[in-house]
Nucleic acid binder design. Structure first.
Length: 872
RNA sequence: GGGCGCUUAGCUCAGCGGUAGAGCACUGCUCUUACAAAGCAGGGGUCACUGGUUCGAAACCAGUAGCGCCCA
């Protein structure tokens, strides 16, 4: 290959970036080259993040895309910084939702899971998983996720199931798992127990009915929103100090409609201020009443079955709970028992997180984790700084939860999931069976399965081979960072903390927890399946490219902050990718190179851009450390667009056109700056940077990749070059503003005489100034028709040949004068204030004095210009 | 009911004691050979309200109003 041929080939980038031509090709190449694989045998320090396992039933939404962008950026950057970076992929089995989906499919065939039987049904779910579970991995490939696919895990895999059984057995043996009859949240539609946090509370319109129990002097009025539960009342409770009812405590009243007599009891938990101060007690159908019942040895009378159908004998038997309510109120009314009815009465009602059905508190025998000691350890790990939560404000939520935690109901009346490893003997014995143990002959296994979060809680180490002492586990545990939305802090993060520390000898599962916000639609509403306002990330990627979506997400990801989706912003991110594309295209056309060391004796503008690059590297590193993705992205956006493209490339054009050694040096600096910029951007926008970096460096033939290029380190800053270029920018901008105000066409060149450049330190840059401001040298017939005094030093005389719009110029100067006067007034007022002079720090006073002086000279200069204007 | 947080330009947000900022949107002029998915220039804010602290408050304190989230 000849030297001439190569640069020629390198200029052949099309004028627009076409993501579709690049993305799938690059991703396939990365996978083929094994770029994502992490090795436990590596000498490099480990950097580990596990994917928050998506539900196998679903597909990724924008919230996942945001989370994946963050994780991918962190791990890609870690890899470039020399870490053995592992991003662990996988999915969870999503017990309730998956079972629901498959049951719905069965229903279409007119079948229920009971028609199939347990074994066949579970087989059916596996079939479904194998058929449809692939959608998510396809989405991840489109997003560019650099996950180690060879390590992909599923919570129902054999190894992970073994981990579940192992930890269950350990917790059971440590008496941290127990079975008890309690009031739990029951979903009558899913027909299973739910944990507290799987219940969503909303303010719903209901009714408040006041009912008189007993008769005459021995009557007492109670209020309820759930009249149908009165069939199961076993007491009426009042506060012990409530004088109104003191005479009734210890007596019995007749329960309407049933003829049963129930006691009036005194309990300190009754609020005498609420309603009549007397409450009906239904221990089998309300958690608070259950506690009262326990304290007073009341019978638990269950009057509804697991479908929410009334089972109490009598006229209401067989009615659904929502039919029974009006029927019972009507009967009470007919009986003269209803004292008052409030309708609508707004109160908090619990709903099943998965299907939104109203949750029924139900007395039943379930398995629980005793979380007290586990939560204590999890809280301490954050309190003593072993685990840091970003942003720190979220720590309060974390603490309030681990400090006030309730035992965790882990059994679910489902078939899809990890079956509880407890076996019952013929005489009521029970045994917990470990992974390599078998239950005694003839014993029966508990029919229930475990909450999905029980297995998700093991994710940071079960995916690495635990309970085996694997090399992977030793290398990659604890994880470095855990990134997820703040909405699942309790669902998942706390539980990983509890189980991780329990299983791994007190070592927390990760060092940093990064919590980002939720995605909202354009109206600011939270995106959710039930609202139907979700956006498919694939649609946005199809329209604008993966990098555009990723850059948009990164640029709007703040610790704890929500993100509003707007098509125009994704478009703006797409435009940014195109800008990068064209900057590199220009560089290639200009012969930019990455070969050899940076030359000495660089020009001021070369030193300036290198100084700005150094500051950008520092800024990007600092923001990454703080998980400030928005600020990190903004720093790169600003550097790339405003400094490299808008100024450095424009400043380079005349130098490159000139040719010679100066041009060679600039070609080298240009190559260096773009090389560094592409590396810095790669973790966020992997595809376009790979394509451009390979083109710029010629790395394609070497089988190279920006993925494994070293992360830039900050170079020297050059304050002197920065000051000079700042002055140059001010001068050029001032001339451009004048031109624009005067209505001069952008391309129109204007003969101009510049004076005072030497004093301003800009003498060496006159040709650059002329190039950027489109100013020609004055000819023989030069006549200054307008004068600009830009700073104290520089005067610009322009020959606009009578085209001067005096009114426009006067308006502009008047405005500038007003601003300068306002500034002068402010400064003078401050400096005339003795309190300010006496108490303000010296540097502040000096700064104000400086500003006062500048304002004064501005006023003098502008006033002179105004005076020099021809009369209107 | 308890707790936490928010209120700054049309939108989304940054700034958290010392000249009110960014991106997008908007207006004007331009196809100036990297890019019209662009360039250049510009307009736009009593920093929710009321008090207080301070030489100085968007920022600190107290209260008010509205909004949001979490937990019960």
């Amino acid at each position: 290959m000849t030297n001439e041929a190569k640069p020629q080939a390198r200029t052949e980038l099309p004028p627009q970036y076409a993501p579709a031509d690049v993305e799938s090709r690059r991703y396939a190449q990365w996978v083929a080259d094994g770029r994502f694989a992490a090795s436990e045998d590596s000498d490099k320090p480990a950097y580990t993040i596990v994917i928050p396992p998506p539900n196998v039933t679903g597909s990724l939404h924008l919230g996942h895309a945001q989370d994946h962008t963050v994780i991918d950026a962190l791990t890609r950057r870690a890899r470039m910084r020399g870490f053995e970076a592992l991003w662990m992929p996988g999915m969870d089995h999503a017990g309730i939702s998956t079972q629901n989906v498959v049951e719905r499919n069965l229903a279409d065939e007119g079948l229920s899971r009971h028609d199939l039987g347990r074994e066949a049904f579970v087989e059916r779910v596996w079939q479904w998983k194998n058929e449809y579970g692939g959608k998510i991995s396809g989405q991840m490939r489109r997003l560019g996720d650099a996950v180690d696919w060879d390590r992909e895990r599923f919570t129902m895999d054999e190894g992970l199931s073994r981990a579940v059984q192992t930890i269950f057995k350990r917790l059971y043996d440590d008496e941290l798992i127990y079975r008890a009859e309690r009031i739990i949240n029951w979903c009558p539609r899913c027909m299973t127990a739910l944990s507290d946090i799987e219940v969503e509370h909303t303010d719903d319109e209901g009714e408040l009915v006041s009912i008189r129990y007993g008769d005459g002097d021995a009557s007492i009025v109670v209020a309820t929103t759930r009249a149908e539960t009165m069939l199961g009342d076993t007491a009426v409770a009042v506060h012990p100090d409530d004088a109104r009812y003191a005479h009734l405590v210890g007596t019995e009243v007749e329960l309407p409609l049933t003829g049963r007599r129930i006691p009036v009891i005194a309990d300190a938990h009754v609020d005498p201020e609420f309603g009549t101060g007397a409450v009906k007690v239904t221990p089998a159908h309300d958690p608070n009443d259950f506690e009262i019942g326990r304290r007073h040895d009341l019978p638990n009378l269950t009057v509804m079955d697991e479908r929410g159908t009334v089972t109490a004998h009598g006229p209401f038997q067989g009615l659904d709970r929502f039919e029974a309510r009006p029927a019972i109120v009507a009967a009470l009314r007919a009986d003269g028992r209803v004292v008052e009815e409030k309708r609508p009465y707004v109160h908090a009602v619990g709903h099943c997180e998965r299907c939104k059905t109203t949750v029924e508190p139900r007395l039943s025998k379930q398995w629980f984790v005793k979380v007290g000691p586990l939560a204590k350890a999890a809280g301490d790990a954050v309190r003593d700084g072993r685990v840091r939560i970003h942003p720190p404000e979220q720590e309060k939520r974390y603490f309030s939860w681990v400090d006030n935690i309730h035992d965790w109901c882990i059994s679910r009346q489902l078939w899809w999931g990890h079956r509880i490893p407890i076996w019952y003997g013929p005489d009521g014995e029970q045994v917990c069976v470990g992974p390599d143990e078998t239950a005694p002959e003839g014993w029966r296994q508990d029919p229930d399965v475990l909450d999905t979060w029980f297995s998700s809680a093991l994710w940071p180490f079960s995916t690495l081979g635990w309970p085996e002492d694997t090399a992977s586990l030793r290398k990659f545990y604890p994880n470095t960072v855990l990134s997820t939305g703040y909405d699942i802090l309790f669902f998942w993060v706390v539980r990983m903390m509890m189980f991780g520390m329990y299983a791994m000898d007190g070592t927390p599962p990760f060092k940093d927890v990064f919590l980002h916000g939720l995605i909202r639609d354009e109206d600011g509403k939270k995106m959710s399946k039930s609202r139907g306002n979700g956006v498919d990330p694939l649609d946005l990627m199809d329209a604008y490219g993966s990098d555009a979506l990723r850059f948009f997400l990164a640029r709007n990801t703040t610790p704890g902050g929500d993100l509003v989706v707007n098509d125009e912003w994704v478009q703006a991110a797409r435009n940014f990718c195109n800008k990068l594309w064209n900057a590199t295209r220009f560089a290639l056309m200009s012969g930019a190179t990455v070969e050899g060391p940076l030359p000495d004796d660089l020009s001021t503008t070369d030193r300036w851009i290198l100084s700005r690059l150094a500051r950008t590297v520092e800024e990007v590193d600092a923001q990454y450390e703080r998980f400030e993705f928005a600020k990190m992205s903004a720093a790169l956006y600003h550097f790339a667009w405003d400094e490299v493209c808008d100024w450095y490339l424009e400043l380079s054009k005349p130098v490159l056109a000139e040719g010679g050694e100066a041009a060679d040096r600039t070609r080298r600096v240009l190559g260096h700056v773009l090389d560094s910029l592409l590396r810095l951007l790669h973790p966020v926008v992997p595809f376009v940077t790979e394509e451009l970096w390979l083109a710029l460096t010629g790395g394609e033939e070497r089988g190279d990749s920006v993925m494994v290029a070293a992360w830039p380190t900050p170079g020297e800053t050059d304050p002197q070059a920065e000051a000079t270029v700042a002055a140059l920018q001010e001068l050029v901008t001032e001339v451009r503003r004048f031109r624009s105000d005067q209505g001069l066409k952008p391309g129109q060149r204007v003969a101009t005489r510049l004076s005072g450049l030497t004093e301003a330190g800009l003498a060496a840059h006159e040709n650059l100034i002329r190039s950027l401001a489109r100013l020609d040298e004055p000819g023989d017939d030069f006549t200054a028709t307008a004068t600009l005094a830009v700073t104290d030093h520089v005067t610009v005389r322009l020959d606009t040949r009578g085209n001067i719009d005096v009114a426009a110029e006067r308006a502009r100067l008047d405005k500038a004068l007003a601003a300068a006067r306002k500034e002068l007034d402010g400064c003078t007022r401050k400096l005339g204030n003795e309190g300010f002079l006496a108490k303000a720090p010296e540097d502040v006073v000096a700064k104000i004095r400086q500003r006062q002086a500048t304002a004064e000279s501005d006023i003098t200069r502008i006033t002179a210009q105004l005076a020099a204007l021809p009369a209107a």
